[in-house]
């Protein structure tokens, strides 16, 4: 049995307490890629770990009710779509594909637009990576437990 409530109460309590903070750290790493190490890939992995840890230790119904299995493919697809959409936005204003600086918004300089574009791309990559990891984990354990 891969998923399901873990026999040791210490492990269960510690994982239940830690996983929200791992999730939060993942979001921090995604959002903080501009200033420190990390970004979408590393942050997405941390988010996936924060979701997978309850699945390994908590009761199965509870863990899968917290984050349903369907969320993996949805997050991966939404992330990839978001990346593609943000790439096509500059095309409408005459820029090149993925050239966020070409988007003109009154009062925002091009460098700031690129800064914001990077943020959206990091969020998109984070969604796609965490969704893909969650999808892989779910299909691997579903073979065994169902």
């Amino acid at each position: 049995m891969m998923t399901g409530s873990y026999p040791s109460e210490v492990v269960r309590v510690v994982c239940a307490l830690l996983s929200p903070f791992i999730l939060l750290f993942g979001i921090y790493v995604i959002a903080h890629g501009h200033y420190g190490p990390g970004g979408g890939f590393a942050g997405g992995v941390f988010v996936a770990v924060g979701v997978i840890l309850p699945r390994l230790t908590l009761q199965e119904e509870l863990a899968f009710k917290l984050v349903p299995t369907a969320l993996g493919p949805v997050a991966a697809g939404v992330g990839l779509l978001l990346f593609l959409l943000i790439g096509t936005v500059p095309l409408l204003t005459g820029g090149a594909f993925l050239d966020y600086g070409a988007v003109e918004v009154a009062g925002v300089e091009p460098a700031r637009m690129r800064y914001l574009g990077i943020l959206v791309v990091e969020v998109a990559v984070g969604l796609a990576v965490s969704g893909a990891m969650l999808m892989l984990f779910d299909v691997l354990v579903a073979r065994r437990t169902r």
């Binding site: 890629g33 501009h34 200033y35 420190g36 190490p37 970004g39 979408g40 991966a76 697809g77 992330g79 990839l80 990346f83 593609l84 790439g87 594909f97 993925l98 966020y100 460098a111 700031r112 690129r114 800064y115 574009g117 990077i118 791309v121 990091e122 998109a124 990559v125 796609a128 990576v129 969704g131 893909a132």
Partner: peptide, 27 residues
């Protein structure tokens, strides 16, 4: 890009097509 971390601005701006390709591969 107003981004102090050059790795991030490289991955998500200058070479964002590479990152798009990687994301596609992973998904």
């Amino acid at each position: 890009t107003q981004t102090p971390n050059v790795v991030t601005s490289l991955l998500a701006d200058y070479r964002s097509q590479d990152t798009l390709g990687e994301t596609m591969v992973i998904v």
